[in-house]
């Protein structure tokens, strides 16, 4: 015990005396030079159309592999085959009908989900009674996998359009509700004080402080909701549809038409990308006051 104690004191003694001197001599020179070279921690200016770089590269790889004959055309047809199939389906009119059907489902489901999510979040985030009634219920709903509700909804609503739209609406409203509600109830207490000092009425407080303050959270939910609407659509149309893009793909699977399946997947992908971009553009306009890394 005594020996270990004495050694520890001597080591600490030596380090405390030598460390500062060593640190200064060793670090001084390089630190100055490093500072001049430093370019900052932000990732720098964004590239033009940078989001397209990855997908284009993937398509290029796909085309190259097809041209080199490295891919089994039965499993993965060449991009130009897929393109030709797409054009053929478009010109004979079947694709148009299927796309429009799918778009309509996604749009209805999304619109209902958006309205429900925002309304419930406002009711629950702004009133105590609303919170007591709504928040727990939504959390319960969230715990149930929405796609697991499909069999029940078919029994209740039939296998028509209604149940599909209902499922998509549920997939959409949950993330919108959760994020908007969190943002509404997480309003900075300092701003509440400010509103009191400035003599704002309850309505002014909600309109000028609570809602604008919750918008960033709402947009997080909105983007998740948009993605969710397509996810829900894909699953629904592949399992329980009699029309739409998913149905088209399901039929193609039966006939071994992998090019048609790829056409369907690509259209889903393009729609997903477009809707997400649209939300981002709106977000950037509405939240222009935020100067973040991406702007």
């Amino acid at each position: 015990m005594t020996t270990s104690a004495s050694t520890s004191t001597t080591t600490t003694g030596t380090t405390t005396t030598t460390l500062p001197a060593v640190a200064v001599t060793a670090d001084d020179g390089p630190r100055v030079r490093r500072r001049q070279r430093r370019r900052g921690l932000a990732p720098g200016k964004p590239w033009p159309a940078s989001r397209l770089v990855g997908p284009l590269l993937l398509i290029a790889l796909w085309a190259a592999a097809s041209a080199a004959g490295q891919l089994d055309t039965g499993a993965i047809p060449a991009p130009w085959t897929v393109l030709r199939t797409g054009v053929n389906l478009w010109t004979d009119g079947t694709l148009t009908t299927d796309v429009l059907t799918s778009l309509e489902r996604a749009a209805y489901g999304f619109a209902i989900g958006l309205t429900a999510g925002v309304t419930l979040a406002l009711a629950s985030g702004l009133t105590r009674s609303g919170e007591a009634l709504i928040d727990g219920t939504v959390q319960l709903n969230r715990a149930i996998p929405t796609l697991g509700l499909i069999p029940l909804f078919i029994l209740w609503l039939g296998i028509g359009e209604t149940f599909k739209i209902a499922i998509i609406a549920i997939v959409v409203y949950i993330p919108i509700y959760l994020n908007t509600h969190a943002a509404l109830s997480g309003i900075d207490h300092r701003f509440v004080e400010l509103a009191e000092v400035q003599g704002l009425s309850k309505v002014q407080f909600i309109r000028q402080i609570v809602i604008p303050g919750a918008l960033p959270g709402f947009f997080v939910g909105l983007r998740l909701g948009v993605t969710g609407s397509w996810l829900g659509l894909v699953v629904l149309e592949q399992i329980n549809a009699t029309s739409g893009l998913g149905y088209m793909m399901f039929q193609a699977q039966n006939y071994g038409q992998s090019d048609v399946i790829l056409v369907g997947l690509l259209i889903y992908g393009v729609f997903g990308l477009l809707s997400d971009t649209a939300v981002r553009l709106i977000e950037r306009r509405v939240l222009s006051w935020r100067r973040t890394l991406s702007s």
Binding site: R190, F191, E193, L194, A195, V197, G199, I209, P212, W289
Partner: peptide
């Protein structure tokens, strides 16, 4: 009529300076 100035400026980041001044 009482006004309060806090230690932080407490400007609402989503309102332009003039709109902050006119709050309420």
């Amino acid at each position: 009529r009482v006004s309060v100035v806090f230690q932080d400026s407490r400007l609402l980041p989503w309102r332009r300076v003039l709109d902050n001044v006119l709050l309420g």
